[in-house]
Design a protein around this nucleic acid. Structure first.
Lengths: 177, 177
DNA sequence: GTCTATAGTGGGATAGAC
DNA sequence: GTCTATCCCACTATAGAC
């Protein structure tokens, strides 16, 4: 395992424990067991380090979403998987969604792989993006703590999914090609 | 007009022009025409200054959303108003949604006022939150530049609104009480 | 491939004179 | 209510010795 991968491992742990604000070259270096300047022998700059974490997140999502899309109610399962993954990795999720993807630094295909299950389940791009919007909106309001205290977030998800399920009846009998 | 309000005016301009990252006590002071330490004679700290901006944003949204909710297709009009406001005030929008509301520093009622039109149009809280999720998700992905280049965001909005409209038929004949 | 030293920049906030 | 001076903190990144 390359030193770069070790650094990414440690950075990911740090990110998921303490959040984006705490992910500094200094803190990463300390956790790895070296001084901050030494990191630059393995990683060109911070942006590429973050891109490495984002790539891992997209790959992980792809796996989880693919499995969900094969369940009985793929749309509901996918929504649940989306929310679940975000709640398990809130800081990584925010890093992945708070700004434009560093597409120039991402392994080719990783963005498409994460999106593919959603596209397969919804059947077309417009519906996929709308459902993504719903899921991302509910997730990010929840992660940000923006709902009023005591808000029934589960209920909001049920209503949203039901609305989409009602308009996606045609895709159930369609193959995933 | 109090000196505090003048400071908030300037801070709001600065925020909307340059973004949250550029909104520093130093930059605000310079734009006001004083030194940073002097700000603390009018505002206890940065957090309360930001809370003042958020309160203004919520009040502005309340006005815009109320007007939209009185149009012929209230749900679609509200969605369009939501997106439009966010695009006109992207940095303020992010300040308002990226974290928990500083409810302890907000004028009472201002959060509810911004939410009321949405609640009136959707008819119940679950549907209101689901629609908010959809709108916030699409808006924040758009503002963050997270959609792939060339993505048809308008189409995603149409699909999402159509899905909700199909499940909200009962509210059209209901009064806003 | 690691280190020390340091450049260069920025931030929020306080003390105390006037 | 404004100022100067300052504290203390943090960050990314580079130079150059070893």
């Amino acid at each position: 395992m390359s030193r770069r991968d070790q650094i990414l491992d440690v950075a990911l742990e740090l990110l998921e424990r303490d959040g984006v604000e705490s992910l500094t070259m200094r803190s990463i270096a300390e956790a790895v067991g070296m001084r901050a300047p030494s990191l630059y022998k393995h990683v060109p700059d911070k942006r590429s380090l973050e891109a490495g974490l984002i790539a891992r997140g997209l790959a992980a999502q792809a796996g989880v979403f693919e499995r969900a899309a094969r369940k009985r109610s793929p749309l509901a399962a996918l929504a649940q998987a989306y929310r679940g993954w975000a709640r398990e990795h809130p800081h990584l999720y925010r890093l992945m969604t708070d700004g434009p993807l560093p597409r120039d630094l991402l392994p080719p295909g990783v963005e498409a792989a994460a999106a593919a299950p959603l596209l397969a389940v919804t059947g077309n791009v417009g519906r996929a993006r709308a459902l993504w919007g719903l899921a991302h909106g509910l997730v990010s309001l929840e992660l940000a703590g923006r709902f009023p205290p005591g808000a029934d977030v589960d209920a909001a998800w049920r209503v949203g999914i039901a609305a989409f399920a009602a308009t996606t009846t045609g895709s159930r009998s369609r193959s995933t090609s």
